[in-house]
Design a binder for these strands. Structure first.
Lengths: 190, 190
DNA sequence: GTCTATACAAAGATAGAC
DNA sequence: GTCTATCTTTGTATAGAC
């Protein structure tokens, strides 16, 4: 992706994490980047095109990158901690997970974006599920219920806590993270 | 609250749960209810007024009502199950918790609404926290970590799962609910 | 690839009649 | 309390020059 194009996508991603897809405009982008609206329309004729590219970039830059990195790590514990921390490094203060943001607005998204969001949601669950299964198999994790239901719960709790961190001054995200570790890692201590 | 006024507030609440605060318009409301935009402006001059009334109605109709009902129940287990189920009865298919929806859009809300949303977020956590403490005290619940962190995790997981249910055809919410019960209720069986 | 100018529709809001 | 009419601003999008 060319520089300018990538710059627009990155700014749009930040706006989605901060304000949501429906709540940012090409004017917001143009002022933040320092170009005109028309220029952005040149690169992404419709907002839907831009939204789709944001989704595609999440898939490639976050998911594929994480997948590769995870395969190089040795223990399930390392993998879990990598995934959880990696996730947080992508989110600044006042932002939430872009996938959560798009899920919250799901009903107003164009169909093409709905499809991408559903796909990303399923993928992140699958990845975590694999790690949990590995941990159960080698005895480093311990929990009741299926890996799939546990994976959903962990992801939902983690991202939900991010949303709560907007209104509660506490360090809620880390509190929840600790709580998660306590519940599934056998020898975990805070 | 008068009939028409309440009808407007109820419709607005549904729209927030479905589409989000920023994504519904007075036009949407007017068409859904069958009155003109001007009439809605008569009852709620600014959208902010309507948004605030929606928040206030959640506080009174959901929170105060739940508080009263909970005080009449006997065991922590009953109270927990009541709260969790009560919550779900308020949410139709394709909707999410209105507080979650407002949290997701937090950065674009007027200050008055930010305050209300922060208040509601704190309140729901406090209520659940009290129930968890009771359950720990009488031995019916069992978990590691503080009641406060557990309460945050449960709420975050529960509401997060609602967002996921938009994109995953599974009965995710019930799966997560079961997972929660398994982890804190001593003698729980699916 | 970027700009100015412009079109068009939608959103929030108000004035004034009934 | 509800309507018609109108205003203003914003959002999305296009045309055409440089």
């Amino acid at each position: 992706m060319k520089n300018r194009k990538e710059q627009i996508v990155n700014t749009a991603t930040t706006f989605i994490k901060k304000y949501g897809y429906d709540s940012f405009s090409y004017k917001d982008l143009s002022e933040s980047i320092g170009i005109t609206k028309a220029t952005i329309h040149h690169h992404f004729p419709k907002k839907e095109d831009l939204g789709l590219t944001v989704c595609e970039q999440i898939r490639v830059k976050i998911f594929l990158a994480a997948e590769k990195k995870i395969s190089q790590l040795n223990t399930p514990k390392e993998k879990l901690e990598y995934v959880m921390n990696k996730f947080l490094t992508e989110i600044e203060k006042g932002e939430i997970c872009p996938i959560s943001s798009l899920q919250a607005e799901y009903n107003i998204l164009p169909n093409s974006m709905k499809e991408m969001v559903a796909n990303l949601s399923e993928k992140e669950n699958t990845y975590l599920c694999e790690i949990l299964k590995e941990g159960l198999a080698d005895g480093s994790f311990q929990f009741s219920g299926s890996p799939r239901s546990m994976a959903i719960m962990i992801i939902a709790a983690y991202k939900g806590s991010l949303q709560y961190s907007r209104t509660m001054d506490d360090n809620i995200v880390n509190i929840v993270l600790e709580q998660i570790y306590k519940q599934i890692i056998k020898d975990h201590k805070a």
